[in-house]
Computed example of a mutant assay.
Amino acid sequence: MPDDLLLQTLRPVSHDLGGFKVHRTLPHKERTTVGPFIFFDQMGPAQLPPGEGIDVRPHPHINLATVTYLFAGAIEHRDSLGTRQVIEPGAVNLMTAGRGIVHSERSPAGLRAGGPELSGIQTWLALPSDKEEIDPTFQHVPRGSLPLIQGAGARARVVMGTLWGETSPVTQHSPTIYADIALEPGGSLPLDPLADERAVYVAEGDATLDGLTLEPAVLYVLRPGLAATLRSARGAHVMLCGGAPLDGPRHVWWNFVSSRRDRINQAKEDWRAERFPLVPDDGAERIPLPVVTPKTVSYP
């Protein structure tokens, strides 16, 4: 039976950010992580007005890694390590916060006049407890360096981990799988049980999994050990994510993730006291610590 394929169906909380929508499926009230994925956002698709763009001012992170992956448009990343990198569709930006990093994300200046596109997925990965305080790093892997699997009306780009016999060069801090799957009309692709925890997400189009219809913008958590096949009648864009379970609970407050609540409290004070490093050439403004204190959430 199709329902035997799934552990959970996680419907998104959607936010209109003025010009584009964000659909968030992790964290969710019914489940907070899939493998190391502790945050899963779909941005857009959107066409912003001419002269405008996204401007996410400098803000901090600790004890996590962010993964930015675009379907359309471009984002300029800057961080306190001195990195300045434009990411475009099919490439990967992996920013490992470790003991602490500050970054900003903005539409490139050269794209604003025509009205930039924005479409993609941004995720956070919780770091293993023994790697939470590693030195911060940044890794950009271009589109052409990611393995591409093709066949049966399907193309799959391995964003992280090992899938279909191919391994991505993107760093893994713990066992992780992440793939971008494009299904042509009538296309299909098998999903083998290569990770303890897995989920599929239809970003666009129509897809089924062994006959079960998958709705767009919903994260479907698969049962362990399941082998199943993705299919599409009219074409679809699907993301596969997952990996090994976390090695213990995590606490989340604003942009901070940690296995220790006291570490999050220290990060709050460090940001309030301006002890985090600045982003070169983008240090004139920053996102302040929230005035209305968000609840600290503990994730098992």
Rank of each mutant, 00 (worst) to 15 (best):
R57C: 04
Q122P: 00
H103L: 15
T137A: 12
D79L: 14
T83Y: 04
P142S: 13
G120N: 05
A113T: 05
E76Q: 15
R112P: 00
I101G: 01
P108N: 15
A126L: 11
A91N: 10
G90I: 07
G110Y: 14
S119T: 03
V86C: 06
P89C: 13
E132G: 00
L125E: 00
P60W: 09
A113R: 08
T68P: 08
H140L: 03
R57T: 02
I134R: 03
K131F: 00
L127G: 01
G51D: 06
E117C: 03
E133C: 11
G73I: 12
A91M: 12
V56P: 01
I134F: 01
P142H: 09
L81R: 09
H59C: 08
I134Y: 01
L94H: 05
I101A: 13
G110A: 14
G115N: 03
V67I: 15
D135M: 12
P116D: 00
H61Y: 07
V56C: 04
R57I: 02
S119K: 09
P89G: 12
G110D: 14
I121W: 01
G115Q: 03
I62S: 02
P60A: 14
H59D: 10
I62N: 00
Y69W: 12
P58I: 08
G144V: 00
I121M: 06
T123C: 03
T68R: 06
P136A: 14
A65C: 06
E117Q: 08
G120R: 03
G98A: 07
L111D: 03
E105H: 14
I62V: 07
N63T: 07
L70F: 10
S129W: 00
E105M: 14
F71Y: 14
E133V: 12
V102F: 11
T96N: 02
I75G: 09
E88M: 10
D130H: 08
G120D: 04
L94S: 03
P116G: 02
W124G: 02
T83V: 07
V56I: 11
F138E: 00
L70M: 14
E52I: 02
F71H: 14
L64P: 02
P136S: 12
M95Q: 13
G73W: 07
Q85S: 06
T83A: 08
T137W: 11
R99N: 15
R143S: 08
E117R: 03
L125D: 00
P116Q: 01
V67R: 00
L64M: 12
G73K: 11
H59T: 11
L125Y: 01
E132K: 01
H59Y: 07
G115L: 04
